[in-house]
Simulated assay, not measured.
Amino acid sequence: MADFEKRGYTITEIVDKDHMNMDRKTFSKHIRTDKAFPKPFFESGNSVMFWGTNIQYWIDKKSGR
Rank of each mutant, 00 (worst) to 15 (best):
Q56L: 04
N21Q: 07
K61R: 10
F4W: 04
S63D: 07
K61H: 03
D3P: 03
K35D: 01
S63L: 13
K62M: 12
K29W: 01
T26I: 07
I55S: 08
K35L: 03
E43D: 02
P40W: 08
K25L: 07
Y57E: 15
M20S: 07
H19N: 13
S44E: 13
K6Q: 15
A36I: 04
D18F: 11
V48K: 15
S28I: 11
Y9V: 04
D60H: 12
F27A: 00
W58Q: 05
T33L: 02
S28L: 15
F42E: 09
A36L: 07
M22C: 14
M22N: 03
M49P: 00
S44V: 14
E13G: 10
K6I: 10
G52L: 00
N46F: 07
F4V: 02
I14E: 10
K61Y: 05
E5M: 10
K62V: 01
G64Y: 02
F42M: 05
T12N: 09
S47P: 02
M1E: 06
E13A: 14
D34G: 00
I11Y: 04
P38D: 12
W51M: 14
H30C: 09
K29Q: 04
K62W: 00
P38Y: 03
P38W: 01
K61D: 01
T10E: 05
T26K: 10
S44I: 03
